[in-house]
Design a protein around this nucleic acid. Sequence first.
DNA 1: TGCAAACCATAAC
DNA 2: GTTATGGTTTGCA
Length: 206
Amino acid sequence: MLEIYTKNMDGTWFAVACSQQKVVTTSFGETQQSALSHILSNLPYNMSFQVLHNPTNFAEAAITVLKTVYDGKDADLNLQLETADLSVYTKKVLKITSAIPVGYVSFYGAISKAVGGSPRAVGNVMAANPFVPIIPCHRVVKSDLTLGSYSSGGINVKFELLKRERRGFTSSRIISINGEKLVVVPVELILKNHTRTSPWANNKCK
DNA sequence: TGCAAACCATAAC
DNA sequence: GTTATGGTTTGCA
């Protein structure tokens, strides 16, 4: 039986769905309803579940990880994620995305070069990411250094997440995961670019 | 800059 | 099966 647990921390609702000591999907949102409905949209249509009022230790621990990542802190990502139902391609994209360190971002195109497929296909995987923000799809941006989009909350949320992940890095680097190489650049580059071009950051529309 | 075409894994018919 | 849809990129005017 799938168990769903939601919790409000510092004004944001976090939600996890777990089964057999594994995380099946996660979410967060402004309201309990938005977090919950996002969770449900990631589940098969008629899967049965129960909403926990008293969390298991595992659910509580999972929520804590969500909150830690959300706050831009370095998290210990030792959670078991249930990926059995995902396609091979999706798993590859999620895996390489999870290797992007805090304080850096990468690009849709860079990821598609590493794992195959096209930038759009990578974007599709991100949009359907079952493990936000544990799998840091907010660290994937467009190659022109603009944010792109963010389906779980919009680009304002993406921007805030990245802002909290600033670590003061100054140069890009290449990380290697399973022999595949991926360029990552300091998140500061994106923040700088965003404040310069964003309509709401400088009070100007265009 | 702005637009159009190519990109390719999924979801929806 | 086939078509439609993107969290994109690139090239060309």
